[in-house]
Simulated assay, not measured.
Amino acid sequence: MLETFFSKTIKWYLIITGFLTFTVLTVAFWPKQTLTGQYGYTDNMLQGFEYWQVIYQHWGIMVAGVGLQLLLSIKYKELRLMAMAFSGFEKACFVYFFITHIWIDKQEWFWGWKMIFFHDSFVTLYSLLFVVYWLTRDKSKPSAHLA
């Protein structure tokens, strides 16, 4: 069952998830514009921005790298297992941080990240299902994720 599921969905999953993840590169080059436009930050939320701008820029580069790895694994199938494992772990960490921090100190600004939360939750679930498939697959057959 999982074999069929992944053989039919892996390519589109990599295309869509890779592209959406790669678009975070905008934060690296236009952090203030992206935070206000995409994540709903107000001028009040951007007070002290010069102190933490580099953290957002670094985050944008790192996450875009995950997206690039997913996109490259469309063509280079030998990268898929690592891309799935790394992106799943990275996204699961964000989901965990979002859930554990959203209720602390009325962090309204964090709701601007809700679309990333939903995307990363989907990636986490798909990746978890992929791990179950990887561990329980019939090792005598070619792997579905390499189809």
Rank of each mutant, 00 (worst) to 15 (best):
L68N: 03
Y51H: 08
I55C: 09
E108D: 13
L68Y: 02
L81Y: 09
E50G: 08
F97K: 10
S87K: 00
R80E: 00
L79K: 02
F86M: 10
W111N: 10
M62S: 14
L68W: 04
L71A: 00
M62H: 13
Q57A: 00
Y96R: 07
E78K: 14
G88N: 04
S87P: 01
A85E: 09
F94K: 03
R80I: 01
A64S: 05
Q47G: 01
I74Q: 05
I55P: 03
E50K: 06
L70W: 01
V66N: 09
W59S: 13
I99V: 14
G65T: 02
V95K: 02
F89V: 14
E90T: 12
I61V: 14
M82E: 15
Q53E: 12
G48V: 01
W109K: 09
K75F: 12
H101G: 08
Q47R: 06
A83C: 02
W103E: 13
I102V: 15
G67H: 03
W103P: 15
N44Y: 08
K75I: 11
R80L: 01
L46K: 05
T100R: 07
T100K: 06
I104A: 12
Q69L: 14
H101E: 11
Y96M: 08
G65K: 02
L68F: 05
I61E: 07
W59Q: 09
Y76R: 09
Q107V: 15
I55V: 14
E78S: 10
L46V: 07
D105N: 13
M45S: 06
E108I: 15
A64Y: 00
F97S: 13
L70T: 05
F94I: 04
W59P: 05
F98L: 00
L70R: 05
R80M: 04
Y96G: 06
